[in-house]
Computed example of a mutant assay.
Amino acid sequence: MQTATSGPRAAGTEHRSRRRGLAALIAAAFATTVIGVATAGTAHAGIGPGECGVTATFTTEANWGGTWHRDANLRLEIDNRHTVTGQGGAAAGTEVTWTGPNGNGDIVFDTADSFTGTAQFPGEGPVGYRGTLVSSDPMSCDEVAVFDSDVEWGGTWHNDARTTMLIDNRRTVVGPDAVAADTAVTWTGPNGSGDIVFDTAGSFTGTARFPGEGPVGYRGAGMEVCAVANYRTEARWGGAWHGDAVLSLMIDNRRTVVGADGVATGTAVAWTGPNGNGDIVFDTTDSFTGTAQFPGEGPVGYRGTFERSEAIICADAGYTTEARWGGAWHGDAVLSLVIDNRRSVAGFDGAAEGTAVTWTGPNGNGDIVFDTADSFTGTAQFPGEGPVGYRGTLN
């Protein structure tokens, strides 16, 4: 687990923690303390979308032929330790430029919610360009580009706040699906400066300067997005089925065992621990039946049907894993693990010590126990291979 340190890293780590904290607050807002099984369950809405910043959307006009003409909306987000552009637009005086195969732009915010400048779209000449803010929209993590960022100072690279970015008008200049190599982005203003070039579709290098500090080297690598499956559930007690808390579920390592794109029929998942027990089997690709037991209550029948998926950054619920074979431990695929219904069994902050999770199915088997809140040991078996030792530590 990361801890705050002195220097630039501390500020970056703090910003990342606030984002996770916001997701927790959203979940807490849905939860209420009530008595009885039926009402307690329906109060929890499950894992919501990953918090990946706020994008500012501007209506724009391009000036050519001596006249202003309505053009495509510009969606703009640049966020690291501070929000450069996003909620409410940008601080007055902020300048943003971009160049690359998908278009160029050079804009200055005259006010927080309006800009003027120039643009050039592929295959066309330069035009005047202006825009006015129309909305500020919270973004899911699959709607923007998210980068794990480092800064260089004192001759060493230090992990820093994540960078989220979106530049999208007629074409997507920077977005979640890829960034054209050699695309360059710069920004200057009260909330920081940056000058970066994308070397490949998933990484950038350059320099940055945060308020009150000197310039530093700056680099970022694109972060993988995972989809958590949310199931509408019911618990059976007193001879009837009652609506219960949404179950958010994801198990993904070399293959996706449980995710938003469906689950192989016959896949079984079980969990036990201080925050509840469950034992379910997927009868179809999007529904399960089984049993559950919540803290302080007796066992109940349990069933669920897929309702929606939510995108999160895989690393936020990810474990660095190793598999043991041939008498030695070998690095293996990251395990992303979420089990969350009335309480979080396993998720962004690990799992309660002693929690056990098992899964079996066509896409692999696993049997793990959390020795600590952020580490586990056990066994795994991947399709077409024999069983191996398995251990992991929360990213």
Rank of each mutant, 00 (worst) to 15 (best):
G327D: 10
N253F: 06
L25H: 06
M223D: 04
I368M: 05
T267C: 04
G217W: 04
T85F: 02
V173Q: 11
T355M: 10
A328E: 04
T39I: 07
T67K: 08
M223V: 04
G36S: 05
R236M: 12
W153D: 11
A62T: 08
W271P: 01
V34K: 13
A227G: 05
E213P: 01
W153E: 12
T207Y: 12
V345R: 00
G202E: 11
T118N: 08
G41A: 00
T94Y: 06
T355I: 07
P274L: 14
P176N: 11
R81F: 06
G347N: 06
A245M: 07
V144R: 03
E14P: 02
F115I: 07
W271G: 01
T256L: 08
G347F: 05
F198C: 04
A260N: 13
N341Y: 03
G276C: 10
G21P: 07
P176H: 06
A380F: 00
H242F: 11
D316T: 10
F294C: 15
A29D: 15
A373M: 04
G326M: 03
N275S: 14
A270P: 04
A38L: 11
A92D: 03
F294Y: 15
M250V: 02
V34A: 09
H69V: 11
G117I: 00
A227H: 08
P138E: 09
H158G: 05
V357P: 01
A221C: 03
T59Y: 11
S114E: 15
N104F: 13
G239Q: 09
S287L: 03
N73D: 14
T59R: 15
D286C: 14
T305D: 00
G243P: 13
T163C: 09
T118F: 11
V96R: 00
L74K: 00
E322T: 10
T85S: 02
D177E: 13
S344F: 04
F382L: 12
S287G: 07
D182K: 14
T132N: 13
G125N: 08
G384I: 06
V300Q: 00
T291C: 03
H69C: 06
F210W: 06
G243A: 14
D160P: 02
G7M: 05
G93C: 07
R219S: 05
D244A: 14
G304H: 11
D316S: 12
A29K: 15
T111R: 15
V246R: 01
E14S: 15
F115N: 12
L133G: 01
G217P: 01
P176T: 05
V151S: 12
G366F: 09
G384S: 13
L249D: 01
E95N: 13
T32W: 09
V108S: 12
W329V: 10
T186G: 00
W329D: 02
G366K: 14
T164I: 11
T83A: 08
T42N: 07
S135D: 14
E322K: 09
G202Y: 11
V144H: 04
N169D: 10
A23V: 05
A268I: 04
A323I: 12
R254A: 08
A161I: 09
N73F: 11
F58L: 03
E322H: 13
A27D: 11
Y129E: 07
V185Y: 01
L25Y: 08
F370A: 07
L335A: 13
T321L: 01
P211T: 02
